[in-house]
Design a protein around this nucleic acid. Structure first.
Lengths: 154, 154
DNA sequence: CTTTTTGCAAACACTTTGCAACCCA
DNA sequence: TGGGTTGCAAAGTGTTTGCAAAAAG
C-alpha cells in the first residue's frame, strides 16, 4: 500500500512529506496543499479560484503541475468524471465516494467492508496501487428538490 | 436499480431494449451496439476504428452520440480515466474493475461482497443510480515485464 | 550557482454542436 | 411524410507544454 494511506493528511504533513523526498517546497506548493485540505474534492479550477485572493499570481498550469506531482507521490487521488471534469480526493484511506448524479456533490463514507475487501486483494498477492469506489445517488438536497418539483431530473 | 442491471446484455437485447422504449433503431446504432459487446471496455475512438472496415461512413460524432444515448438508457457505464480517456463498460451487474496502472488493461471481477455492499445502501434508502469500483494494480503481464527489467515503472 | 519551478500563451486531445441531408417509423 | 438521426467540420472544454525569467537549496 502506498505511503500515506491510512494517514489523515494536512498541509503541514504534505510539506514535511515533500521535504523528506527531496522535493522542493515553494510558496505555490504550500498554498495548493492548504487549498486541497480545505476544499472538498476540488477541481484544478476551484483550487485556482480559491487561491486567487491570497495568491493571485498562481496560474492554472502550476495548479495542474502541482496536483500531478501530489498524485504521483500518493498524496491525492485523481477522480475523473465524464461530465464534471477531474477532481482531487485527499482522503487516502479506503472509503466510498457517494456522488450525486445531479449536482455532483461528493461525500466520503468510511467503510469497514471496503477496507477488508481491499485487504483481501492484497492478501491474494495483488499490489494495490490505488482504488476508487464510487456510488452514484441523488444527494439529500437534490432528492428534496425533486420531491418538491415532482419532475424527475434524469 | 436501473433496468438492465444483472442482465447479460448482447447486441440483440440492446436493440430490443431500444425498440421497447420507442427509440429509433438505425444501422449505426446496431453496429455500435455490436462493437461494444465485442470489444473490452473500448473508447469511442476504438469503437470507430473497429467499425471502419464494415461501416466506414460512421463518424466519431455518431459514436459519441450513440454511446451517450446508451449510457442514459443504462446500457453502458462511462468510466473516465485521468490519462486514458473515457471507456465504456457493458457489464452492468455489480463487479470490480481491476485496472492496470501501467498498461490500462481492465479486467472485470464479479464480487458477492460488492453486491451485498450495494444492496446495503439500497436497503438504507439510497436510490443507487450507478456505481464504480476500481482497483488499480499491475496486471500479470506488466508485473512479469517489471520482474524481467528489474526497474520499477512507477 | 545549479537545477527546478513558475507564469504565460500557445498547443493539445477529446468531446460536443450547428447545420443540411438523410432515414426510420 | 415528419421528426429524429447522421456526417462533416467547426467550436468547445479541460489539460499539457515550450520557453524565458525567477526562485529554491
Amino acid at each position: 500500500m502506498p505511503n500515506g494511506w491510512k494517514l489523515e493528511l494536512d498541509s503541514e504533513k504534505i510539506i514535511k512529506f515533500l521535504k523528506e523526498r527531496g522535493i522542493k517546497v515553494t510558496p505555490q506548493r504550500i498554498a495548493i496543499a492548504k487549498a486541497i485540505t480545505h476544499l472538498n474534492h476540488p477541481t484544478a479550477e476551484e483550487i485556482c479560484k480559491y487561491l486567487e485572493k491570497s495568491h493571485p499570481y498562481i496560474g492554472l498550469a502550476t495548479v495542474y503541475r502541482t496536483i500531478k506531482l501530489f498524485a504521483k507521490q500518493g498524496i491525492v487521488r485523481e477522480l475523473s468524471f465524464s461530465n464534471k471534469g477531474t477532481r482531487y480526493d485527499i482522503n487516502v484511506k479506503p472509503h466510498i465516494n457517494l456522488v450525486c448524479v445531479n449536482c455532483g456533490q461528493i461525500k466520503d463514507i468510511d467503510s469497514i467492508e471496503l477496507e477488508s475487501l481491499i485487504k483481501d486483494f492484497m492478501d491474494n498477492g495483488y499490489q494495490v496501487i490505488g482504488f476508487r469506489f464510487e456510488i452514484d445517488i441523488y444527494c439529500e438536497s437534490c432528492r428534496a428538490r425533486r420531491r418538491r418539483h415532482r419532475n424527475r431530473v434524469v
